[in-house]
Design a protein around this nucleic acid. Structure first.
Lengths: 229, 229
DNA sequence: GCAATAGTGTCTCTGAGACAGTATCCG
DNA sequence: CGGATACTGTCTCAGAGACACTATTGC
């Protein structure tokens, strides 16, 4: 080929639960364009052998970038959508493979403490600073995916610690879906879905301690978890 | 940047209903690599202003390519997944944005008659020739998306003519989902979902003519169309 | 004991599914 | 009229949701 290929990047929307809100992790951007603004963690896909190690896929590129820039590997990472166009990056025609990452707050908190990222609420009441590129839009796309999958998958469990209480999971649900679920029915449906397994660990907080559960690794989809309010 | 960007292409999995099977439209590949094999319609994304007109997005690139190579615009086109890696194209590290296209058979048939594409069954009993690149895998990914969305959306209606009978839609369902649905209940659920509108057109075939329906353009998702057998 | 949270038993009522019946076309 | 296909009425039964109850901790 004689022509210049488009720019190919990966951007990762890292979400976690903090202070009763879904929050996104952002980095400060130091180089032009958009120097000084907040940005999603992301970067170029390494495909040219001349420049060093080559990524195995865009998702592997996302993992490499998170590890390198943040020393962080998320509990959950998935490709969401590829946003593209001639004007979204002033440097030229570009495509960005958006990834959604989920992790428990306790770990993301250490990234915040280390000054690597800052957290900003995106749901239910977004409060975002001006962002670089079209990153605001990319966040919306990733958030839409999370909300869409929330009702029929165990995705939200990845926002919690490895062992969690059913009440924790229910709270995550209620936050993301904007509903209030019945305690007894939620419990029954979650257990009937056979996606969780008891962790033989009691977790207490005020009243009777709760049974701890963890995700069964192989199960992700659930038939009709919440029929929808 | 001084390094070479990865190759960015678009590949389109065009599916239609023919002879009681889901079939994919393939083109003969004439250039190396993989000359002589069958391939998905696809091509490079145009991002370099020096080479002529520039695409507005990868989906627009897919539409341009289909129009140029096949003189065809599908009724439905959506981005599915971006497959990528160092080895999937011998020419270098490449990413392909897979698109799923759906259209009624009557129109695809004219493409076949014009010698532009050939149809090959992919479901329920696949019979595919050896394909170029990893196109076999790309077809599987697109097919997985179609099956996943079939039960909770009106996607399958795009495999039918603009005006269709409920029995046609039910047959498409049964084929893709591998189930047999109750005629009366299927009708009630489809109409209750409020996704179809009567077309004031009777369509006959042997017995009592059936009411023709068309898709309501704005509605795509359905709460719980088929609860699953 | 009380407050707080975890977990269970059970009733109700909707709505999915099964099935039989009626309607309308062609010959 | 019979065959074929379209459409409707209605019964049943599972399961979602509501809610009251019991269980186990800390004080």
């Amino acid at each position: 080929m004689t022509f210049q290929n488009p720019i190919l990047t990966v951007d990762v929307v890292i979400l976690t639960l903090a202070e009763g809100q879904l929050q996104v992790a952002l980095m400060p951007r130091t180089e032009a364009p958009f120097a000084g603004r907040a940005m999603l963690p992301g970067g170029f896909v390494h495909g040219d052998p001349a420049t060093g190690k080559v990524d195995k896929s865009t998702t592997q590129a996302a993992l490499r970038i998170l590890k390198h820039k943040l020393a962080f590997t998320p509990r959950h990472l998935e490709q969401v959508y590829t946003e593209s166009g001639p004007t979204r990056d002033p440097r030229g025609w570009s495509a960005s493979v958006i990834h959604l990452a989920l992790h428990e707050y306790a770990v993301v908190e250490t990234l915040v403490a280390a000054g690597r990222v800052s957290l900003h609420p995106v749901h239910p009441t977004p409060r975002l600073p001006p962002l670089a590129f079209d990153h605001r839009h990319l966040i919306d796309i990733a958030l839409g995916r999370l909300k869409a999958k929330a009702t029929y998958s165990t995705l939200l469990a990845h926002l919690l610690p490895p062992v969690f209480r059913l009440s924790d999971l229910r709270q995550a649900y209620e936050l993301v879906c904007g509903t209030t679920e019945n305690k007894a029915n939620f419990r029954r449906k979650m257990l009937a879905a056979d996606a969780l397994e008891p962790a033989d660990l009691l977790i207490g907080s005020g009243g009777r301690p709760a049974e701890g559960y963890r995700l069964r690794e192989d199960i992700t989809l659930i038939e009709g978890l919440i029929s929808g309010a």
